[in-house]
């Protein structure tokens, strides 16, 4: 478990992170979201001891963050960088060795990953000859070569085409299945929704929210439901009475309709069901939760 207590970082009188406290449970995929310049990268750099905190502490499994912890992390920084004149395989072996692997282990792990990503043909290519996306792939492999328990990825999806985004998301799913802790910052809310167990929203250096994804989405639900029913449209509209507002109603087939309704109060799912089931035959009721994108916008706008 990673436990952060009142973490603060000040750069030349500019507060980049202000008293952020949180716990990240082991085996979680933990998303860090927030607008540009919010302090996500600063938080990640502090976790990797790239910079020292002005105040506060970080504990890993109950002990203060130290060099051994950091060395065991897998870290992909936001700003990508590789030695341009080195060859792909040599570079990966070098990075693996820096993380404590032997030459043999490093070489084997590098070849396995290159094969997994189907890029073994790049082995002897110089980094300078790779495209930005290709280099990012190599750097991603370099950061996880030593099979870390905790993987910290700063904007791992940026700069990748959709195919490679899928490839990376797939890999993160695998990490989750293997029980690794994955901490990643992103602006890609779909990936947050799909992958993350918990998210933390950082805005202007402050922790605005830290919740399970579903809890967070539920907290911002607006009482929207999607229904499919068989029966009379008129009876359905009457049954809504003053409690619900009919947003849309589309006939799918003979007497089968799909409707979107919005609750005018704080009515729960079972109340909807009770009220409507007397008037029509309900085939589907689904509460429409806001997307993480909407939650993000709401949170940030609210903070403003």
């Amino acid at each position: 478990m990673i436990e952060v207590q009142e973490l603060t970082k000040v750069f030349h009188q500019k507060v980049a992170l202000e008293e952020v406290s949180m716990r990240i449970q082991p085996g979680q995929v933990f998303g860090l979201i927030g607008p540009n310049g919010a302090g996500k990268t600063t938080f990640i750099r502090l976790l990797n001891q790239i910079i020292a905190p002005t105040k506060g502490s970080i504990k890993v499994h109950g002990t203060s963050l130290n060099v051994q912890h950091v060395r065991s992390f897998g870290y992909l920084p936001e700003e990508r960088g590789l030695f341009r004149e080195m060859r792909v395989l040599d570079h990966l072996v070098f990075l693996g060795k820096l993380r404590g692997l032997s030459k043999f282990e490093s070489n084997k792990a590098a070849l396995d990953w290159l094969e997994k990503f189907e890029i073994t043909s790049w082995n002897n290519r110089k980094i300078s000859t790779l495209s930005k996306g290709m280099a990012q792939k190599v750097q991603f492999i370099g950061s996880i070569l030593h099979n870390p328990e905790i993987v910290i990825l700063d904007e791992p999806l940026s700069g990748f085409d959709p195919l490679n985004v899928d490839l990376l998301l797939e890999q993160m799913r695998n990490f989750k299945a293997e029980g690794k802790t994955v901490i990643f910052s992103t602006h890609n809310m779909n990936s947050v929704e799909e992958l993350c167990d918990e998210v933390a929203l950082i805005h202007q250096g402050k922790l605005v929210a830290k919740e399970h994804v579903l809890t967070l989405r539920s907290a911002y639900k607006s009482g929207n439901f999607k229904l499919r029913f068989r029966g009379s449209k008129m009876a359905f509209a009457h049954a809504l009475w003053t409690w619900f507002e009919l947003l849309t109603c589309t006939e799918l087939s003979d007497s089968v309709y799909e409707a979107h309704i919005k609750s005018r109060g704080d009515y729960a799912f079972n109340q909807v069901f009770e009220r409507l089931s007397e008037a029509v035959k309900l085939e589907l009721i689904e509460e429409q939760l806001p997307s993480m994108q909407e939650v993000f916008v709401k949170l940030v706008t609210h903070e403003k």
């Binding site: 060099v67 870290y75 960088g81 370099g142």
Partner: peptide
């Protein structure tokens, strides 16, 4: 060069 290419950030996560 390492500062410009930002590889130093990767290196600093492994070495003092």
């Amino acid at each position: 060069r390492e500062k410009s290419s930002r590889i130093s950030e990767v290196l600093l996560a492994s070495v003092r």
